[in-house]
Amino acid sequence: MAVHKLILDDSFDEVLYTLIALHCRLEDYRLAYLLNKYLGITLSRKATDLDYNNGQVSYSIYEWEDEKQLITWSLVSNICKTEELQQTNNTSLFDNQEKITKTFQLLPEYKTVNYFLKIDSEFSFSKEKYILDSILKIPQIATAYSVDSSQLKSKDNLIFN
């Protein structure tokens, strides 16, 4: 019996998308409103957040599907802070519990980024520059820049569906 070996190219494995990192101190709903205003899009909060680590870590996500151009826009937070109570081992009269705040990132390679704007389409350089320039016109955003998604180690975290 002959053995048939199939070799699949990884070319279909890569999904084309544009990823923009946003640095700002805004709440997620306020940032979504400003992006809607300046970019002419309609981001709205999804019913459920992105959950990781069995629901212990969640990231807010806003999404808009442009049905005319068949493009999906997603705004997702990169930082999640959780509080835990930790019992101390002091033998004292009173039980001491300390609150410990743990910080998790959706993309650990970019620890300082507050939000990511993922656009499920690869734009030309001029269109991407126009989007970045429009975002940088928002006074509350400190900076925004494109991220090369091929260099990401944790790109699987960007699969939202």
Rank of each mutant, 00 (worst) to 15 (best):
Met1Ile: 11
Ala2Lys: 01
Ala2Thr: 06
Val3Gly: 00
Val3Pro: 08
Lys5Asn: 13
Lys5Tyr: 10
Leu6Pro: 00
Leu6Met: 03
Leu6Phe: 04
Asp10Gln: 10
Asp10Arg: 00
Asp10Ile: 00
Ser11Phe: 08
Phe12Asn: 04
Asp13Trp: 02
Asp13Cys: 01
Glu14Pro: 00
Glu14Lys: 08
Glu14Arg: 09
Val15Cys: 02
Tyr17Leu: 00
Tyr17Val: 02
Thr18Leu: 09
Leu19Pro: 14
Leu19Ala: 12
Leu19His: 14
Ala21Lys: 00
Tyr29Gly: 05
Arg30Val: 07
Tyr33Val: 04
Tyr33Ile: 02
Leu34Val: 03
Leu35Glu: 01
Asn36Trp: 02
Asn36Cys: 13
Tyr38Lys: 11
Tyr38Gly: 05
Gly40Gln: 04
Gly40Cys: 11
Leu43Trp: 05
Arg45Ala: 09
Arg45Pro: 03
Thr48Arg: 08
Asp51Gln: 02
Asn53Ala: 15
Asn54Phe: 15
Gly55Ile: 14
Gln56Arg: 13
Val57Asn: 15
Ser58Ile: 13
Tyr59Thr: 14
Ser60Phe: 00
Ser60Val: 14
Glu63Cys: 14
Trp64Ser: 11
Trp64Asp: 03
Glu65Tyr: 12
Asp66Trp: 11
Glu67Asn: 13
Leu70Arg: 02
Ile71Thr: 01
Ile71Ala: 09
Thr72Arg: 02
Trp73Cys: 03
Val76Arg: 13
Ser77Thr: 08
Lys81Pro: 07
Thr82His: 07
Glu83Asn: 15
Glu83Arg: 15
Glu84Gly: 06
Glu84Lys: 14
Asn89Ile: 09
Asn90Pro: 04
Thr91Phe: 05
Ser92Asp: 05
Ser92Lys: 04
Phe94Val: 10
Asp95Tyr: 00
Asn96Arg: 12
Asn96Cys: 04
Glu98Ala: 05
Glu98His: 07
Glu98Phe: 03
Thr101Glu: 08
Thr101Ser: 10
Thr101Leu: 05
Lys102Tyr: 08
Thr103Ile: 10
Thr103Asp: 07
Thr103Pro: 14
Leu107Ile: 15
Leu107Val: 13
Leu107Arg: 15
Pro108Trp: 07
Pro108Cys: 03
Pro108Asp: 07
Glu109Tyr: 08
Tyr110Glu: 06
Tyr110Ser: 01
Lys111Ala: 15
Val113Tyr: 07
Asn114Val: 02
Tyr115Phe: 15
Phe116Cys: 02
Leu117Asn: 09
Lys118Ser: 06
Lys118Leu: 03
Ser121Phe: 04
Glu122Leu: 12
Ser126Leu: 10
Ser126Phe: 11
Glu128Leu: 13
Glu128Gln: 15
Leu132Phe: 12
Leu132Thr: 13
Asp133Arg: 14
Lys137Ser: 06
Ile138Leu: 01
Ile138Gly: 08
Ile138Trp: 13
Gln140Pro: 00
Ile141Lys: 05
Ile141His: 10
Thr143Phe: 06
Asp148His: 05
Asp148Gly: 01
Ser149Thr: 04
Ser149Ala: 12
Ser149Asn: 04
Ser150Cys: 04
Leu152Asn: 02
Leu152Ser: 03
Lys153Ile: 01
